[in-house]
Design a protein around this nucleic acid. Structure first.
Lengths: 212, 212
DNA sequence: ATGCAAAATGACCACCTGGTCATTTTGCCG
DNA sequence: CGGCAAAATGACCAGGTGGTCATTTTGCAT
């Protein structure tokens, strides 16, 4: 779709190297500050080559985005299936932990997502944000539908509001986790190994509320 | 601090025009894509002039940031005082509504904040993020302390976790509100006038939890 | 070994950026 | 009015960008 046939004809090793270099550059600098010059320099290939692989910077970026989105989809499909039998709030915990695992394993992909959300001047930015949003809504929706069917959730709360709350807390939890190393003040994750505890606390607050 | 004396000697009208143009540019394009050329073109002044007002792009940006931070401080001080007598969860509602009011009144300032959070290559970015974080923590902390003293909040929940949850929901609520016009899918704010309802729903979920 | 298409190359281009500075214009004071 | 400091100006610069393309190198089929 976004790659030229020259790129698709490359050995898998080289293809992975190119994608890896592009992922690094875009995750470190976002779209606009990312430099094709830097990418080719890091790869040790000529500048012209990258334009034999991708029409332009935009195509390269969209290719990287689709790659990242595929990774996220696989991850979500995995958790959804493996937690299928758990009660609602246990599934929430499993999902949060899976998210943490993904961010831990692929910090650069998560960083690209954050950049897309807030950087200006990204081609098709709205479409990209919408794709991610749909993925998240689909996943949380499947959890909520099951939870409602099993009567594990109050029925007097608007489902859109519930989705919003879950989405907000999920996203912020992952942000806090992925930025824990540079968070100067009090952070959720100062001491190592505190992830499970925090997940439990957040989900417990979500379950029973803040009021006594 | 960041402005040169030439700028401070300008008439208030001109100073405000310059700040306004800079706010527009930075909020639309973030730090790196923002162009001094665009700003001076919008103002109809010579390029050299802006460098008589500010040492460089970085100083101009930091000046704008401090300006925006001052506006937020005033806003927070206002809500804190005017809601002092309310019970905890009512204060939360007042605070959320005040945030919505600020975003409504100063959408460009909120946009600059979002850009700072996630854009790379911003000078002193970490310090700026930390300043905003401290402001938010100070405010939420004062609400929570009062709520705890009045026994309106469960005592078995970690206060850091509570702060995290409040902060996450606040921020996301404002994001959803400020982006409501471009949110293609189901949004919290499709129909006009739904803000109060959403505030009530979110705070109710926060108070009593999602479980039946 | 030869031929030939596909892939790799890097010098080059037009464009834009933040920033400089010698020069001109302004506006106030006596 | 003259004088003079402060402010405004815009041509200019070095450096970086995404992108091009004529040329060379590679690697495989015959």
């Amino acid at each position: 779709m976004y790659a030229r046939k020259t790129f698709l004809g490359l050995s898998e090793e080289k293809r992975l190297k190119v994608v890896d270099a592009a992922v690094s550059e875009f995750s470190e600098k976002g779209y606009n500050r990312a430099s094709i010059n830097s990418i080719v320099a890091a790869l040790g290939i000529a500048k012209g080559s990258i334009f034999q692989y991708f029409k332009n910077k935009e195509s390269l970026f969209l290719f990287v985005f689709e790659y990242a989105l595929g990774m996220v989809k696989n991850n979500l499909a995995g958790v959804r299936e493996s937690s299928l039998e758990e009660p609602f709030f246990e599934r929430l915990k499993s999902s949060l932990l899976a998210g943490v695992g993904f961010v831990e394993e692929h910090p650069r992909l998560y960083s690209i997502y954050l950049r897309i959300m807030f950087e200006g001047g990204i081609p098709f930015r709205e479409e990209l944000v919408e794709k991610v949003r749909r993925l998240s809504a689909k996943y949380l929706g499947s959890l909520l539908i099951q939870g409602i069917a099993r009567r594990e959730i109050r029925s007097d709360l608007n489902i859109e509001t519930q989705t919003f709350i879950l989405d907000a807390l999920f996203d912020r939890f992952l942000m806090a986790y992925s930025m824990r190393h540079l968070d100067a003040g009090p952070s959720l994750f100062r001491e190592p190994g505190s992830v499970n505890k925090r997940v439990d606390e957040v989900v417990e607050a979500l379950r029973s509320g803040l009021a006594p």
